[in-house]
Structures are given as structure tokens and as C-alpha cells.
Amino acid sequence: MSEEFEPRIIAFCCQYCAYSAADMAGSMRLQYPCNVEIVLIPCTGRFDVILALKAFESGADGVYVAGCLEGNCHFLDGNIRAKKRVAYLRKELESIGVEPDRLAMYNLSASQGPRFAEIVKEFSDIVTGLGPSPMRKKLAA
């Protein structure tokens, strides 16, 4: 089963960097796993733990937040806030016995199309390694 397992991943991408980088990756015809669904957010500062929780409740196997490089946030510290929220929710996931690595934070700039593709692959590999989300057992049944 694990060979066939294709994780469902939700990526919350900041419009100023990760989202543009995704665009660039597309126009560069870069190959990356197609199991990631991108949600555009105006800044990772808009990311809220409830968004990730809803994603997991709806059957996501992994969620990541991708924002600007630290120090380069368009809104100064949105990405730092997001980082703290991700760290907080990772702990909460752990407290209910879920692998915290199902949630991650990445930082990149708008010009890093190849890095975007790399991140998708990297995170997808991590989540594939973890297997299907235990939280969607019931949904799968």
C-alpha cells in the first residue's frame, strides 16, 4: 500500500514569495509531485492554526506553510508569526499522538522556482514516509 500511497498535501503559500515561486516553477516546466494543493494567502501572517486543523480534518496527510525568507516579509514579521504558530500546532498535534512532521514551515523567495519544486518534493517524501494520516482513517474507510 505504501508504494501506491500518494499523500494529499495542502500548502499555504504567501503571494509575495512562495506563490510566485510556484508560478515560476510552472513556467520553467519544473517537475514536482502533483499531490500538493496550493492555497493562496496574502502573507503567511494570515495563516492560522485553525486553517491547518481544518485541512487535517478534511483528510490532508500533510500541511505546510511557505513564506518569505526571514527578514524579507512584505508585512515585516508575518512569516515569524507563522513560524511560531506552526511550532505551536506541531506541539498540539504531538499531544494527540499525531506525527508533528505532518506540519512544516518553509521559507523561500519569489525568484526561487526550483527551490519551490524541491520543497514540494522534500515535504511530499516526508509525508509519504509517514504514511496516510491517522486522522483520516475513518474517512478512508
Binding site: 486543523l53 487535517f56 499525531v98 486522522m135 482513517k137
Partner: peptide
């Protein structure tokens, strides 16, 4: 949400 996820996880 955490309580629901926890329950889903345990079936």
C-alpha cells in the same frame, strides 16, 4: 478540532 482529529485517529 483537536478532539475530532484525535477521535478520527483512533477510529
Amino acid at each position: 478540532s483537536l478532539l475530532r482529529l484525535d477521535a478520527q485517529k483512533d477510529g
